[in-house]
Design a protein around this nucleic acid. Structure first.
Length: 444
RNA sequence: GGUCCCAUCGUCCAGAGGCCUAGGACACAGCCCUUUCAAGGCUGCGACGCGGGUUCGAAUCCCGCUGGGACCGCCA
């Protein structure tokens, strides 16, 4: 089967979590089958749609690296890919339906007649058999059967109509979308039949809920994909996390790359239960990815947050080399759940200034520490030698404990009570830098 | 009000009649390692919503109940 799937957002807002999830599953299915992933813009709401949002959605998808094979920006054989540019098509088919007596005009609008007694059941790849009769398509709070508006008074097609025309004309093989569309599907099936077309396969996806188990919305905090980027989550982590909402490969593997996911993905393994968006899990997945990153990529993820914090990344890079910054973050691997946290936790590698502002002399016995630091600085400057020296010092002094020396050193160098191994930090910072920092406090 | 969907640890996911005294992950708690934890290791806590069937046997199949949710727009 020639798999062709599409993501069809309406440009009335940024790409949000739910949309990203839907786009992701479509992408997964396309890539798994070596099929095509199509982006179609559903901009038939004249009032709310904007070109800016269209751009935002596309860049959101690019950030997640959900690349499409056909779309409004790159074209394709089934274009145009913007519904506002397909109005003639919708009108032609609507006129045919009117001529066939299957639809009628009311005002400026065209309305499809729903006949009672029709079985509009369908089989969903995820949800299985869904039985519906056309008699159930009632008006709200009424027993009246509800006909379907297909062309609005302003000449634009409605969602339920345009989606059918486009999915057919664009040769969509699988319609993969949120579960909130299950109840739209029977209406669309009625339209497919009236038009004499075969229906595509349907696969509905479970909803994503907030902690309170209500549909994810602004109330739950960040909903747009971009907000996650700005918080320091990485595209591959978001991808990994979103893929796990409503799907698993069946084994215990939870940290994977997009290609691994594409290989393993099966629509038949998608879950039916709505999933709660869990920040703790996202954090963990992001941390795992952050840990596994190649040094240069890790640096590229963290760098913007150092810059954002006003740290002199550029000058440190030119004076000490990019390798220094990469090594610093290699030491940090696994520490911090977001790129932003990692940047915050490692600022002392980039500048002494934040260290000064955190350091204070409370409880620091300078007289006791000075000889120890002097001894340290008499050594060859590498972590192994430094630790060896420190241990020898502790062993040679009655009642001395490693932490009585290591902690003040850590605090003086980093301004933090937590850091990677302090001797490794010292080695990387370098003898001169360490010396400068200790002298500043009068510890050397 | 009508139609439809869902129901395993707090959360995400395993489980497609016996392999389940229900497994993994996150979170949480505790312990260990140790110069610190935001790193690493170990242990623990913790669920099949309820009631009926079917069956030698049910988390798995059927029915009812309860509880969630979606949709019923000339929004998508």
């Amino acid at each position: 089967m020639n798999v062709r799937v599409r993501f069809a957002p309406s440009p009335t807002g940024a790409l949000h979590i739910g949309g990203g999830h839907t786009a992701l599953f479509n992408w997964l299915w396309a890539r798994h089958n070596n099929g095509k992933f199509i982006l179609r813009i559903e901009d038939t709401d004249l009032v709310r749609s904007t070109k800016e949002y269209e751009q935002t959605i596309m860049s959101g998808m690019k950030w997640l690296r959900l690349d499409w094979d056909e779309g409004p920006d790159i074209g394709g054989d089934c274009g145009p890919y913007r519904q506002s540019e397909r109005l003639d098509i919708y009108r032609d088919y609507a006129n045919n339906l009117v001529n066939d007596g299957k639809a009628y005009r009311d005002g400026e609008a065209i309305i499809f007649r729903v006949e009672p007694g029709q079985d509009i059941s369908f089989r969903d790849i995820v949800y299985g058999q869904i039985d519906v009769m056309s008699d159930g398509l009632k008006e709200k709070d009424s027993d009246k059967l509800k006909d379907i508006v297909i062309i609005k008074s302003d000449g634009m097609p409605t969602y339920n109509y345009a989606v059918v025309i486009d999915d057919h004309l664009m040769k969509i093989s699988h319609v993969i979308r949120g579960e909130d569309h299950i109840s739209n599907t029977p209406k669309q099936i009625l339209l497919y039949r009236a038009l004499g077309w075969d229906v595509p396969e349907f696969a509905h996806l479970p909803m994503i809920l907030g902690r309170d188990k209500k549909k994810l919305s602004k109330r739950h905090g960040a909903t747009s994909i971009y907000e996650y980027r700005d918080m320091g989550y990485m595209p591959d982590s978001m991808f990994n996390f979103l893929a796990l909402l409503g799907w698993s490969a069946g084994d215990d593997k939870e940290i994977f790359t997009r290609n691994e996911a594409a290989e393993l993905f099966e629509l038949s393994r998608v879950t039916r239960k709505a999933a709660v968006f869990d920040f703790d899990k996202l954090n963990h997945i992001n941390q795992e990815h952050l840990k596994a990153l190649p040094p240069e990529v890790r640096l590229s993820m963290v760098r913007p947050f150092w810059v954002e914090a006003g740290l002199p990344v550029e000058s440190v890079e030119s004076s000490r080399g990019v390798k220094y910054l990469e090594d610093a973050l290699t030491l940090m691997a696994g520490r911090g759940q977001t790129a932003k946290e990692m940047a915050q936790f490692s600022d002392y590698f980039v500048s002494f200034e934040p260290v000064k502002s955190r350091w204070n002399a409370d409880g620091v016995d300078k007289e006791k520490l000075r000889p120890f630091f002097t001894e340290l600085f008499a050594q060859e400057w590498n972590a192994e030698k430094l630790e060896e020296t420190a241990r020898a010092w502790v062993a040679g002094h009655e009642g001395a404990k490693m932490k009585d020396y290591a902690m003040p050193l850590r605090f003086a160098l980093t301004g933090m009570k937590v850091s990677p191994g302090v001797f490794e930090v010292a080695e990387l910072l370098g003898r001169d830098e360490c010396s400068e920092r200790l002298k500043y406090y009068g510890l050397l």
